[in-house]
């Protein structure tokens, strides 16, 4: 139990710094910035207190808002995916996910990919809606969601593969 606590604390701080100091300085091809901090919500232990995840996601988002001058957009997006997560776990891994206590990294690649992709898309859509905050800019919001979402998914996938401990 203590090691999960340690891992999640380390992940929280590492992803926060990675986001602010590296990912938001990238501006790849003009305006592409991946939001890798969603990995914290994605990888949070499945068997855990939902309220603590919601609260932690909110805190992470709020600290990012403070660094990136984005009002409360990151906090709103992060807290939303933290709340919606169980539904998507069920959708991607089947209803049994709760009882089997699956390790995410032991699961097959395809359900893991759908789970990552769906939550990232929802997160980015809420984020860019709040950042632009203008209904006439719907096209730009959608474009940014897809492009940045793809970039985030790629990086999240690579980061996850890099740091996961394979037990096969």
């Amino acid at each position: 139990m203590n090691s999960t606590l340690f891992i999640n604390t380390a992940r929280f701080i590492a992803l926060l710094l990675l986001q602010v100091l590296v990912c938001n300085q990238l501006n790849f091809m003009g305006s592409l910035n991946p939001y890798v901090y969603v990995l914290f919500v994605l990888l949070y232990p499945i068997v855990s207190n939902r309220m603590s995840l919601i609260f932690l996601a909110f805190t992470l988002g709020l600290i990012l808002d403070l660094f990136l001058d984005s009002g409360g957009a990151h906090a709103a997006a992060a807290v939303s995916i933290a709340y919606m997560r169980p539904a998507f776990l069920k959708f991607s891994f089947g209803a049994a996910y709760e009882y089997q206590a699956i390790k995410l990294n032991a699961a097959e690649a395809l359900p893991r990919l759908t789970y990552f992709a769906l939550l990232i898309l929802i997160h980015h859509f809420i984020l860019f809606t709040l950042v632009y905050f203008d209904s006439s800019k719907f096209k730009i919001i959608l474009y940014n969601t897809l492009i940045n979402g793809g970039f985030t998914l790629l990086l999240v996938w690579l980061l996850n593969a890099l740091f996961s401990s394979k037990k096969s």
Partner: peptide, 27 residues
């Protein structure tokens, strides 16, 4: 809890879009 935190962040977002009110969180 979700509703409370979500509406709090929406309020922060709306105030940040207003020129004279973005005082809470900034770099």
């Amino acid at each position: 809890l979700f509703l409370m935190l979500f509406s709090f962040s929406i309020v922060l977002t709306i105030t940040s879009h207003d020129y004279h009110k973005s005082r809470f969180l900034n770099s």
